Simulated scan of single mutants.
Amino acid sequence: MPKISNKGQLMPQSPIRKLVPYAEQAVKNGKQIYYLNIGQPDIKTPEIALKAVKENTLEVLAYSRSEGSETYRNKIAAYYSKKDINVTHNDIIVTTGGSEALLFAFGSIMDTDDEIIIPEPFYANYNGFSTASGINIVPVISKIENNFALPPIEEFEKLITPKTKAILICNPGNPTGYLYSVDEIKKLAAIVKKHDLFLIADEVYREFAYDGHTHYSIMQEAGLEEHAIMIDSVSKRYSMCGARIGCIVSKNKAVIQTALKFAQARLSPPTFAQIASEAALETPQSYFDDVIKEYVERRNILMAELKKIDGVKVAEPKGAFYCIVELPVKNSDDFAQWLLEHFDLNGETVMVAPAAGFYSTPGVGLNQIRIAYVLKKESLIKAVNIIKQALKVYKD
């Protein structure tokens, strides 16, 4: 029999999606499921974006430019300028989601067996992207005990080798909801300049910063122009996950020129999705004000309910719409599967994402889960109560 590649065998399963067959069977068995496992917002997509597609009169759905349409890139640059990020359309390449932007970044700055340092826990697909790119993640562990704050810079310095090419952060963080301070960004800027590394920031949750905090982009940091690579996406900002439109942004001309070659190889980002994304940029601030108010209320209710459960530890998010929860269990993979296969409360159960898949260090995060608070407040209360009752009867 022909052999599957080593790379294919090493590709990790998604901790977010691997339990789907059990969830599907639970539904067939008549259970209602509260889906806390995936960051699919239930917030409505801005009507202006949907209308741009519905009312479009295109007669030929043609390729766009490989780097994305110039009008869209100009409008993205204008959006960034309102955030104190001064770039031009020439610093931007439109991609098929933030995922492709990360793959372009990895391919542009790293060769096989090069290393990238990432604070963990981190977005699970970073593991997959690194495997697909043939590079190695070197994790620096942040801990729930201090709310997943940036580890001391000394911890990063210990890990830097001749193969280290970049540091990657997600800000605000998925899966932790951690929002990096200006001081933390400045410390990272100093270390990448000192060691001549790239600093990649996945900033797709930029709009979601809470409690009076504001997001500080690596693109705002003076003197980082040759080192900074920003990853962005419309998926979460406008509740447009299915559009699959993102971008890679850098003032480093060699990075953009190299990423463009990868973009040319895949031809172009999707045309209709760019039309929708361009229209979405006209979304009024009131939309975001309402969305942020809703997420803060959801977070507050979720935190309050989780803290009522004996033996549970939770880190309070300052941004995005995720949190990591430590449970009084040995293995959250088993617990998550058991919830779907063997437990219900009045015909209802919960789907969560086991957190071990958000780490690359073996054996870490085994008793943690990630919760995405993308459900209405009433549903969150019910979901947490189900977890609470389940823990009373679950046997490791």
Rank of each mutant, 00 (worst) to 15 (best):
residue 211 D to W: 09
residue 333 D to W: 07
residue 178 Y to S: 06
residue 63 Y to H: 14
residue 40 Q to W: 08
residue 38 I to A: 03
residue 336 A to L: 07
residue 254 A to S: 14
residue 306 L to Y: 06
residue 283 T to G: 05
residue 109 I to M: 14
residue 297 E to I: 01
residue 364 V to Q: 06
residue 296 V to Y: 00
residue 99 S to L: 10
residue 275 I to G: 02
residue 362 P to K: 09
residue 287 Y to A: 00
residue 34 Y to P: 02
residue 337 Q to F: 03
residue 67 E to H: 08
residue 57 T to K: 15
residue 83 K to G: 01
residue 219 M to I: 00
residue 377 K to E: 13
residue 276 A to G: 14
residue 371 I to G: 04
residue 55 E to G: 05
residue 181 S to I: 05
residue 173 G to S: 12
residue 390 A to Y: 11
residue 2 P to V: 14
residue 181 S to Y: 11
residue 107 G to P: 06
residue 393 V to M: 15
residue 339 L to A: 04
residue 379 S to A: 15
residue 342 H to N: 09
residue 113 D to L: 12
residue 83 K to T: 01
residue 361 T to V: 15
residue 361 T to A: 13
residue 57 T to V: 15
residue 270 P to S: 11
residue 8 G to S: 10
residue 43 I to A: 06
residue 288 F to T: 00
residue 9 Q to T: 06
residue 120 E to Q: 10
residue 256 I to K: 07
residue 283 T to V: 08
residue 169 I to C: 01
residue 302 L to W: 01
residue 385 N to C: 09
residue 315 A to D: 04
residue 155 E to C: 07
residue 155 E to S: 13
residue 138 V to S: 13
residue 99 S to M: 09
residue 395 K to T: 09
residue 44 K to Q: 14
residue 63 Y to I: 10
residue 343 F to Q: 00
residue 363 G to Y: 09
residue 56 N to L: 11
residue 277 S to H: 04
residue 21 P to K: 08
residue 355 A to F: 05
residue 248 I to D: 03
residue 33 I to G: 06
residue 232 D to M: 00
residue 145 E to I: 11
residue 274 Q to L: 06
residue 89 H to M: 07
residue 352 V to T: 14
residue 198 F to V: 04
residue 120 E to F: 04
residue 330 K to D: 13
residue 370 R to A: 13
residue 122 F to A: 11
residue 306 L to G: 02
residue 395 K to Q: 12
residue 369 I to H: 02
residue 24 E to W: 09
residue 356 A to R: 15
residue 261 K to H: 11
residue 181 S to T: 15
residue 130 S to F: 03
residue 180 Y to K: 05
